[in-house]
């Protein structure tokens, strides 16, 4: 069981240490072990912390909804409308992006979204724009989508592929229209996969700092940007730890709620 040891030492232990550190003090730019709730009180008393908290939750929530909605027609088409060969290749090409540098892709989006970028040059040639897209919420969402969309399509596609085709045919034979079949038969059957995909989108966009920083302009900050700023500038690690622990607790609460929802039997 070497993995237990490894994960305990290098995964659980660091996180516990983070929790412990959130009670430490910083004196003369050095951390001093202690047990003081001052970091928690200070951090939770700050308006910008709560602004950041709700903003991050909101961003992640909106991204989850947008990604799930945009991914579904694609996963649906790949599951039911194309040949198995096309489906396999599509699956392969959807996995490829995970192994390309996210940073490089974000840099590419900067080239597109810039005020003098590709999109604005194209738009101005037909007499439109310029629109500022970089350093806006729109930019952030483009970045989040870059991160989440392929994964969401893959996960939805896997669960849609497992839907029993006979049930769909049965619905059609019973006179159920195409749209109604999708919403009354297919989505409930693929519920678990759709929710799991959504949970992953939420986790990824909740914790990501690259999109809100390099496409969203970093101001106002999300929680992950707050952690970086607090850690990298100065020695306020205990306060960064407060933010981190809050994020983990929030994430786990949402994850467990969603998973419980996914596996709940219909009464």
């Amino acid at each position: 069981m070497p993995i237990v040891v490894w994960q305990l030492v290098f995964f659980v232990f660091p996180l516990l240490f983070l929790l412990l550190m959130s009670f430490w003090l910083v004196k003369n730019y050095r951390m001093v072990p202690g047990f003081d709730s001052v970091n928690w009180i200070k951090m939770y008393g700050k308006g910008y912390f709560w602004d950041g908290y709700w903003r991050t939750l909101g961003y992640a929530g909106i991204t989850t909804v947008i990604t799930s909605v945009l991914a579904f027609p694609c996963a649906f088409a790949l599951a039911f409308k194309v040949s198995p060969t096309v489906r396999r290749w599509a699956m392969f090409f959807l996995i490829v992006p995970f192994f390309t540098s996210y940073l490089v892709r974000i840099f590419s989006w900067q080239i597109f979204l810039n005020d003098n970028g590709i999109i604005n040059v194209l738009l101005s040639s037909i007499g439109l724009g310029p629109f500022s897209m970089l350093n806006t919420f729109f930019g952030t969402v483009v970045g989040y989508l870059t991160l989440c969309l392929p994964l969401a399509v893959v996960l939805q596609l896997i669960s849609l592929s497992n839907v029993d085709q006979r049930l769909i045919e049965a619905a059609h034979n019973l006179g159920c229209g195409s749209f109604r079949t999708v919403f009354a038969v297919i989505i409930p059957l693929a519920k678990i996969g759709i929710i799991v995909a959504a949970v992953f989108c939420f986790i990824l966009s909740f914790g990501d700092f690259v999109s809100p920083y390099y496409l969203g302009g970093s101001k106002p900050p999300t929680l992950s940007i707050l952690i970086i700023d607090t850690t990298k500038s100065g020695q306020q690690w205990p306060r960064a730890a407060v933010v981190a622990i809050t994020m983990i607790v929030t994430l786990f609460a949402i994850m467990f709620t969603a998973i419980a929802l996914a596996y709940r039997r219909r009464s």
Binding site: Q7, F17, F206, G207, I227, T231, M247, I248, L251
Partner: peptide
């Protein structure tokens, strides 16, 4: 045991970074 071995990808990387650095 399984949760321990599969959970790491759910923790945001920034937090993993901070925790690892601190320790």
């Amino acid at each position: 045991y399984l949760a321990l071995s599969l959970l790491p990808p759910t923790i945001p990387l920034v937090i993993m970074g901070l925790a690892m650095l601190a320790l």
